[in-house]
């Protein structure tokens, strides 16, 4: 089935992390990513890992969900590890046929996998703890200063909102169309490329027509509700920083500063 639990899907909760302003979480992730990717040496990495661990504990997310986000990308982690381990020259540890594993390789591979894993964990934290709609509002607010440079911040945010709203609906529709055509004996896999492309028509024509129909209906419904672009529009849930947000941003930036310091001093 197409609709199961998807990667990084919001898990409702009431932890400190859930209550933070979405902008705080975005800033936090950016700071952590910068530290992991650009600055951290191994001491810095340990510091960042510690901070991540604290964040995970505070979030009260079930362990299964957290590991799940790593598990889904395990192949990436394994391949990265193997490549690093095999391709780094140095003191030989073992030989597997034509492949040589060096001591330095194992260390380098461990480090890079740790970096990647940390990055994955941190990147999923905001999506796991924030309703998508709120995250969208946060992103809109962060990029809205760029509006003066001609970046259509409101339109981008609206597109994201609508995508969030309609992706599940369109997936459901795809499921129905596939089922319906299969009930008339359609096979979607056989034959030469030309035949194969032709066999997909019964699927894509209705899906495309359906998406257009929905888009049309939605545009009418939005206009009927007085929508006329971002100008003069207000928001019900105006975002507001509160005390915990300032504390979290402060701590995050302090850690980033610390990581940079560890690297360059």
């Amino acid at each position: 089935m197409l609709s199961g639990i998807s990667l990084g899907q919001y898990i409702p909760g009431d932890s400190l992390l859930h209550r933070l302003d979405p902008r705080t979480k975005v800033i936090g992730v950016l700071a952590a990513a910068a530290s992991i990717l650009a600055f951290a040496n191994w001491q810095g990495l340990v510091l960042t890992a510690l901070l991540t661990l604290i964040a995970l504990l505070v979030s009260k997310l079930p362990l299964g969900i957290i590991l799940g986000s790593l598990k889904s990308l395990w192949l990436l982690l394994v391949i990265t590890f193997l490549l690093q381990a095999f391709l780094t020259p140095g003191t030989l540890l073992a030989v597997l046929g034509p492949l040589k594993i060096s001591r330095e390789g194992v260390f380098a591979a461990g480090e890079i996998v740790l970096r990647l894993a940390l990055l994955i964990l941190i990147a999923f934290l905001p999506t796991l703890t924030t309703p998508p709609i709120k995250l969208t509002a946060g992103l809109e607010s962060i990029i809205s200063p760029l509006q003066r440079l001609g970046v259509p911040a409101h339109e981008l945010a609206l597109m994201m909102t609508l995508a969030l709203r309609f992706v599940p609906t369109l997936l459901q529709e795809a499921e129905v169309v596939i089922s319906a055509q299969r009930s008339r004996g359609a096979g979607f896999t056989t034959g030469s490329p030309a035949k194969w492309a032709r066999s997909l028509l019964p699927l894509f024509v209705p899906l495309f027509a359906g998406a257009l129909r929905r888009a049309d209906d939605l545009a009418v419904a939005m206009e009927s509700r007085c929508y006329r672009g971002g100008a003069n529009r207000t928001r019900m849930n105006a975002l507001k920083f509160s005390a915990p947000d300032y504390v979290v941003i402060g701590v995050t930036l302090a850690v980033l500063a610390g990581v940079v310091a560890l690297r360059f001093i």
Binding site: P131, R233, M236
Partner: peptide, 18 residues
């Protein structure tokens, strides 16, 4: 096809926000 938001109260608010 007339619901714009993935949260009930946000959707109800859409018209008033406009």
């Amino acid at each position: 096809n007339q619901i714009v938001s993935s949260l009930v109260e946000e959707d109800a608010a859409f018209g008033a926000e406009n």
